[in-house]
Amino acid sequence: MIEAVKFWNEPNNKSHWDFEVDPEWHIFSDMVKLAANAVKTENPGITRVLGGMSPIDTAFLQRLKERGTLDDLDAVAVHGFPLDWNHWNINEWPDKIAEIEAVTDLPVWVTEVGISTFGAEEVQEFGFRRTAELLSGRVDRVHWYSLYDLPKAWEATTRHREAEGSSYYRHFYMGILHEDGTPKLAAKHFSDYTPEFGICQWFHFEDHRLEPAVEWLRKLGVKRLRTGLSWADYLRPDATRWFDKMMKALEEFDLTVTFCFTPESKGIRPHHTSAPQNIQEYADFCVEMMKRYA
């Protein structure tokens, strides 16, 4: 069921890792080394991937490399959103991949790439097709972010919120499907690039979109799916029941599963972006998920 695991999500983005708690990523580095080694011991056949960088930053990767963070990893991942948040042109994708390849011998995966329909669906339609032209055959994995728009009643996972101005609201328009499940213009092109192209779809605790998402993934010809198992959610009542339900529903796909989000009670600060007080507990969570689902 699980072909790859990712350790954290966007660790060089303050929306996902608290730089004030761990400004030099020393705790993060030690945490990933411990967890990667533990997962390798539990299941050596699983591909182990560094959480996707956002922004794409060779200096950040070099810092981790010097601390030995990559020693038990099989790939590194990058995230890019050049038509929404990044300060580079969509046609620079091959250059961005090459920059990372220049500082590591590990394969580079693109585990999130997406374009919002905040301004117009036609922008996403163009952007998807151009992205596919640039990345197909260039990297081992591409996961489009995402299948569904984020429901407007929810909050985007970001520390900036409305301080981002209109950039904040782009988070809610990244799907190739509207919130209600109706397709956007780009959806009709997606199956042209499957099964090589995968989807990244995060499922929230008790997410009502799980079953219809599976139907859409089948319809689009998707074989590779990236999602997450939240350490913070693991401490909720009935968490195991929900995890079992989600993983059972997704068992037909080749899964890349991200382990992230610190439980408030386990963080140096009470926030899901905080480094944990005890990094062994994160490693233990990763191993428990491997035992149960891999």
Rank of each mutant, 00 (worst) to 15 (best):
Met1His: 08
Met1Pro: 11
Phe7Cys: 11
Asn13Tyr: 14
Lys14Val: 15
Asp18Ile: 03
Pro23Met: 10
His26Phe: 05
Ser29Glu: 05
Met31Glu: 07
Val32Asp: 07
Val32Gln: 07
Ala36His: 14
Lys40Ser: 12
Ile46Lys: 09
Thr47Asn: 09
Leu50Lys: 08
Gly51Ile: 11
Gly51Thr: 05
Pro55Ser: 04
Ile56Pro: 01
Gln62Ala: 09
Leu64Gly: 06
Ala75Asn: 04
Ala75Phe: 07
Asp84Cys: 02
Asp84Met: 10
His87Ala: 15
Asn89Ile: 13
Glu92Ile: 00
Pro94His: 12
Pro94Asn: 07
Ile100Tyr: 01
Ile100Pro: 05
Ala102Gln: 12
Leu106Ala: 11
Val110Trp: 08
Val110Tyr: 09
Ile115Asp: 00
Thr117Ala: 14
Phe118Met: 07
Gln124Gly: 12
Leu135Pro: 04
Ser136Pro: 10
Arg138Gln: 13
Arg138His: 12
Thr158Lys: 03
Arg161Thr: 14
Glu162Trp: 05
Glu162Ala: 11
Glu164Phe: 10
Glu164Thr: 01
Gly165Thr: 06
Ser167Asp: 15
Tyr168Val: 03
His171Arg: 00
Phe172Gly: 08
Tyr173Thr: 15
Leu177Ile: 09
Glu179Arg: 11
Pro183His: 12
Ala186Arg: 07
Ala187Arg: 01
Ala187Asp: 01
Phe190Thr: 02
Pro195Trp: 01
Phe197Trp: 14
Gln201Arg: 08
Trp202Glu: 12
Phe203Ser: 04
Leu210Ser: 09
Ala213Tyr: 06
Lys219His: 13
Val222Glu: 00
Leu235Val: 12
Asp244Leu: 02
Lys248Phe: 08
Ala249Asp: 10
Ala249Gly: 13
Leu255Asp: 02
Pro263Val: 04
Glu264Ser: 12
Gly267Asp: 08
His271Ala: 15
His272Met: 14
Thr273Tyr: 04
Thr273Asn: 02
Ser274Leu: 09
Pro276Gln: 08
Asn278Ala: 05
Ala283Val: 09
Asp284Thr: 13
Cys286Ala: 10
Lys291Leu: 05
Ala294Leu: 11
